[in-house]
Amino acid sequence: MVDFITGPMVWISCLFFLVGTIYQVYSIRKLTRKVQKADKKKVVPEKTDFITKDSLSFKIRMLKYSFVGIHREKIALSILFHMLIIFTPLLVPAHNILLKQSFGFSLLSLPESLIDLTTILVILCFVVFLLRRIFVERVRAISSFSDYAILIIAAAPFVTGFLSCQQFFDPRTIYLIHILTGEIMLIALPLTKLVHMVFFFFGPLISIHKQTFGNGKEILRSEG
């Protein structure tokens, strides 16, 4: 069992993550194109219609009146959290040693003390998001079991990684749990809402809507 978790399972989960994420990007692109085509067919402007289209600069100026302006601090925290959650695992010295052993190359490694700090920040962010989901009424109202589950799935590798690094409890067991939770997270990524890490970059750009950065326009009928 241990050999499977530390051996083939690592490859299976990495492959699943890569193929699954590429498929999700492909599927959302395909879906958006279908939607765009359907919209083009549906809306045929008439001579009496007013066609309004906002310029990019106007959209940027209007951002402060949208959720961007309203939730400035939350968005800043969210960006910090997402940057840390993506880059921290890539810059861990231990991960890079394993990468070097397997593929003969490694990425930039940050000092252990800095990695500890970023990991603690990530874990704190997870705690804030979990508490927000439990105690903020509007977030709780819209949350389902899967929302709590994906938060725990994403947090688990960071918590166990930190415990493993600090040699808490039985280091060997914690190390195995760390690998297993990491693999679960990689497999869950393309299957759950965690895939929003990809959609976040694509959605607002390709979505055709007057308020997004997609090339949206609004047709105002003079009658009816």
């Binding site: 279908k34 359907a38 959720f67 309203i70 977030v139 959609f199 959605g203």
Partner: peptide, 23 residues
């Protein structure tokens, strides 16, 4: 069915962040 793709896209990308609330 006429708008199946749009609805599928909507349900797929909503992450229940609740940032839309104040708008």
């Amino acid at each position: 069915d006429e708008h199946k793709d749009k609805m599928k896209l909507m349900l797929k990308v909503c992450v229940r962040c609740t940032f839309c609330a104040e708008t």
